[in-house]
């Protein structure tokens, strides 16, 4: 039983770590601030949830589990608020997202970042 729990928690931690890395790669690859927010969103939600889930399985029923749940709760509650505030602040100073209208034309990875 303990072994099953261990394996489950390792899988969960590995998934979370992979999502964190993907989010980090996305932060650097995506072209402008608005699309980078999506990559940050991966780290903030799935990365945190899976890594903490893995730690939770290691912790068992203890104080540590409660604190881990509180960490997930706070991160999931605060991250959309700060992301939205960031997007709104960027728009309010005149930054416009880089938008592709055509659905079929392949996207060039142009570094057409929004202006400040």
């Amino acid at each position: 039983m303990a072994l099953v729990l261990d394996i489950l928690s390792w899988i969960s931690i590995l998934i979370g770590a992979a999502f964190c890395l993907i989010g980090g790669i996305g932060l650097l690859r995506l072209p402008d601030v608005f699309s980078r927010m999506h990559a940050a969103g991966i780290v903030d939600t799935v990365g945190v949830v899976f890594i903490v889930l893995g730690l939770l399985l290691q912790a068992g029923w203890s104080m540590a589990a409660i604190k881990l749940l509180l960490i997930v709760f706070f991160v999931l509650y605060t991250s959309p608020v700060s992301t939205h505030a960031l997007a709104q602040a960027a728009v309010s100073v005149g930054a416009r997202p880089w938008v592709v209208d055509e659905d079929d034309e392949p996207t060039e990875k142009g570094d057409e970042s929004s202006k400040t």
């Binding site: 790669i25 690859r29 880089w98 938008v99 996207t107």
Partner: peptide, 27 residues
């Protein structure tokens, strides 16, 4: 919502990891 977050996270991850990165940002 958690299920939905997971599904779209997998989708966005696949988009990011493709070499051509087929993103179509829109408002």
């Amino acid at each position: 919502l958690l299920k939905e977050i997971f599904v779209s996270a997998v989708h966005v991850s696949r988009v990011i990891l493709q070499p051509r990165m087929p993103i179509r940002p829109r408002m």
